[in-house]
Design a protein around this nucleic acid. Structure first.
Lengths: 334, 334
DNA sequence: AAATTTGTGTAGAACGTTCTCCACTATCTA
DNA sequence: TAGATAGTGGAGAACGTTCTACACAAATTT
């Protein structure tokens, strides 16, 4: 207590062995007798020794995995995080989350910070960066990217099949008799390729074309406010859409607000669908038809791939998770 | 690129000076000439040098602050995090979040992990621990605790005035003519003192007494499900309450679901109020009367106090933030 | 019986910083 | 002119691990 932290040298002294031996025991390395193992373990317990991560980092592992969050406010993240931490629960890896913000610059600062802290691997959720920057990061550190299509050889990817998700929504709405189906997407600031909103928008376009329908998109942002403004714009048109498919639930909530304010009842006057199936979508009051992408599975998969890569795999893997359409009260027949 | 990371020695060689000099420049320490400063800065830029945090940690600072999150799913956290990161934006500190879970054991594991990684300071959000454990942590690392009443000399505290918040709700409901006002609180597993739910419950009790009314509480959990179950129990009573004050918005959402299922309209048949004023509370569809506690201010305050403490302050500070009642459509006259 | 293999433990050099001394020069004071 | 004082730069010892090389003993093979 008084004299600072307990080090491996203290343990070695207590057990009457060398620091190298203690290190072996701690790491579970080869070449330790049962007797040595017992002696050292006892000393560790008695002294309450905990390995100093920074010192470890100087030579080997830190046993720390970083998850870069692009937008803390997105209610979809907790599922992913739960998947990641759940999968890592019984390993000695620790997960630390880095709030990267939505700006490319702040995200880059965050990933740099994580690399500076010599994390063993990084999970990047919907990073807004160029492919080149991503490849540069992945060249130095094991990386798994979530939610970005078109994987690269340098890192693993876990994606939701957003094309399929968008098609599920369009098919559902067309099946209900809708023809004027609008889509609200996220305005991309950076020249990043393969972000979910882009793919969802593309999937929407394809699905509309497949049904011989004209697409109608407005680009705001994936926020409640963005959905609200997008919907206001769409609903002000002379020939307003009868259904709005927002690329994210959070935006769909804004659409619902705009509908309420415009005196339109959902789903009688306007059908609304979202994407992500966030928790509150199931509230009776909201009852939002949405595409579910099982964040826990995505998170757990990402964690698994990352550990594999840290432990030596070099061949790149892309894991695609199929989404499901959850039909609720916000969509109905025309 | 090919030969691993750029170190302070590389910079020193390039600039033709000693590593000690480079270190001084990097740290902005005293005793550097303008010429030296320029020479070294140029070499740093040319080589793209970044200090290795782990190596720094061996001797000095890591410039890393940890925030322990007790429940990632709580929609109230993003505000706090935004406050923290916002306040730290232009400093050289980096914020890393640790998902601690709701169990005392997992939270302890998380704080230990953060200490092992020699973070310069810790912000703990509603930690579920004994005062003794908290004091032990704070003895070794600067700590600011958010959302836990009854501060201790070893750490700083930032709290919402939960007694006042509860009183605001009760006063409001009584003003509307309600007398049978129930409260849903969180069942505490651990023997932790001064957690928000406890204080809110106590504030509710006091306020009811002040109005000469009998209190009626049920303890489930601060989740949508917990609110739902608590409300089901309350609404099943022969003399059911006319207003339910949930100790957290997330639970209030569950109350709304229970009301909907029971065929009760809000606020005509039942008034519902929550606490935290989470984003979706303002959605027209939800329109939940709630107590707002400005998470951003709380987060920013915590960050400020933590930095002060890291930089030498030892006198303990407790900062209390006054909440506001936001009246919306979920509460109405009896 | 000698040679080889296997098992177990240790010495000691990294790893990339920080920071305390110390040395040197140039300026100022007596 | 000698002595003191700033101001600036550098040497080198930490910090707490990991891990390669090696030493030694015991067991096994020739």
């Amino acid at each position: 207590m008084t004299s600072g932290r307990v080090t491996i040298a203290d343990v070695a002294r207590r057990a009457g062995v060398s620091t190298a031996a203690v290190s072996k025991v701690v790491r579970g390395a080869y070449g330790v007798s049962a007797e040595m193992q017992a002696k050292v373990s006892q000393a560790i317990d008695e002294l309450g020794y905990r390995p100093h991560a920074a010192a470890r980092a100087m030579r080997g592992r830190t046993y720390t995995l970083g998850v870069m969050l692009s937008d803390t406010r997105n209610p979809f993240f907790p599922d992913i995080i739960e998947g990641v931490t759940g999968h890592l629960r019984d390993t000695e890896y620790q997960v630390l989350l880095g709030p990267g913000g939505i700006e490319p610059k702040t995200q880059a600062r965050m990933t740099d910070a994580m690399i500076d802290r010599s994390m063993d691997g990084l999970i990047l959720i919907s990073p807004v960066t160029t492919d080149a920057e991503l490849a540069a990061i992945a060249a130095g550190t094991p990386v798994v990217v979530i939610g970005r299509h078109g994987g690269a050889p340098a890192y693993d990817s876990v994606v939701d099949d957003d094309v399929m998700g968008a098609r599920l929504v369009v098919d559902h709405l067309v099946g209900l008799g809708h023809t004027r189906i609008a889509h609200i997407t996220h305005l991309e600031r950076a020249r990043a390729q393969g972000l979910p909103h882009t793919v969802r928008a593309e999937g929407y376009r394809q699905a509309m074309r497949a049904h011989g329908l004209a697409d109608d998109m407005v680009a705001t942002s994936f926020t409640e406010e963005g959905g609200y403004e997008g919907a206001r714009e769409l609903l002000a048109r002379e020939n307003r859409p009868t259904a709005i498919f927002a690329g994210a639930d959070i935006a769909a909530l804004g659409v619902l607000r705009a509908a309420d304010e415009a005196g339109l009842s959902v789903p009688e006057d306007l059908s609304v669908a979202g994407y992500d199936n966030i928790g509150i979508a199931s509230l009776k009051r909201i009852s939002l038809t949405s595409v579910d992408q099982d964040g826990q599975v995505i998170g757990a998969t990402a964690a698994r791939l990352l550990v594999e890569r840290i432990e030596g795999r070099t061949r790149s893997v892309t894991s695609s998770v199929s989404p499901t359409l959850i039909v609720r009260g916000s969509t109905g027949p025309l």
